[in-house]
């Protein structure tokens, strides 16, 4: 096997020979094999257009929203091929946080947090809902800031607060994995630090896969790092190893700022 790609023992998620094409023959992701360690932060890095977002979005099958996308390969979660269960079931197990904060503008903060339950048609008792909202908002350290404005719309919050609300929304349904697509790229440095601290805190209970093109962010908070280039997974290993001693020349070039 390729010694640039680390083998993860008893992974939570296993990606097997995964290729994704937006049009026939044009691959955005090519033949990726990787395991994801439970209760860790795995960062996916690479220059724009390298396929990192595409790979991330395939993990909860978001690519299916756009027709003509072709996917070959398998992804296993709890020994189950995610392409063989229903997408709505899968997405409850794998939550997602997006590049730009996107709380639902027509819902209150409270409703945003329990939006997963609402959208999934789950009717809950008021007391249970209250509990979920409080717990989720505490998990993202937003409770103290918004507890008096729970029934206001989330749009008055700052960008950083909105993004934490979106994390809370993803957490509320107790997913096993949270996918994050450059969650801090639209935020200022202070808000970014807060989110980063939050992620480190969250990995105790969740498994996080994070796409970023901020190398220092990957170095600061991730346990494992992937480097992708032109749709291929070039290198995957423990973050400290990759940053101190990259195996592949292209990884080294990227990390030293030669391209990207």
């Amino acid at each position: 096997m390729n010694d640039a790609i680390i083998q993860i023992n008893s992974p939570l998620l296993t990606i097997e020979r995964l290729s994704i094409a937006y049009e026939p023959g044009k691959y955005a992701v090519q033949d990726v094999n990787a395991g994801i360690k439970k209760n860790s932060i795995t960062a996916i890095m690479g220059p724009s257009g390298c396929g990192k977002s595409t790979l991330l979005r395939a993990i909860n099958r978001m690519h299916e929203l756009y027709p003509n996308t072709e996917v070959v390969g398998k992804i296993f979660l709890d020994n189950e091929n995610i392409f063989e269960i229903s997408a709505i079931e899968l997405r409850r197990k794998i939550g997602m946080v997006f590049q730009r904060p996107n709380p639902f503008p027509t819902m209150s903060i409270y409703d945003n947090v329990i939006a997963g339950y609402k959208l999934n048609g789950k009717k809950l008792k008021r007391s249970v809902k209250d509990e979920i909202v409080e717990k989720s908002l505490k998990e993202v350290a937003l409770w103290e800031e918004v507890k008096d404005a729970l029934f206001k719309r989330g749009t008055f919050l700052s960008g950083g607060q909105q993004q934490r609300l979106c994390v809370a929304r993803a957490l509320a349904y107790k997913p096993e994995i949270i996918l994050m697509d450059e969650p801090t790229s639209a935020l200022d440095p202070i808000a970014t630090t807060k989110i980063e601290d939050l992620l480190v805190e969250l990995k105790k209970d969740y498994t996080i896969i994070l796409v970023t093109h901020n190398m220092s962010q990957a170095a600061r908070i991730s346990d494992y790092s992937m480097f992708m280039y032109l749709g291929e997974l070039i290198e995957y290993g423990k973050t400290k190893n990759i940053f101190s001693n990259p195996v592949d020349k292209r990884t080294e070039a990227y990390l030293t700022g030669k391209f990207g």
Partner: peptide, 18 residues
């Protein structure tokens, strides 16, 4: 915005629910 729809899909909503 697609972002809002994607957020709802990522929470497990069906198209009708979105």
């Amino acid at each position: 915005p697609d972002e809002l729809k994607e957020a709802a899909y990522s929470l497990g909503a069906t198209r009708r629910e979105v």
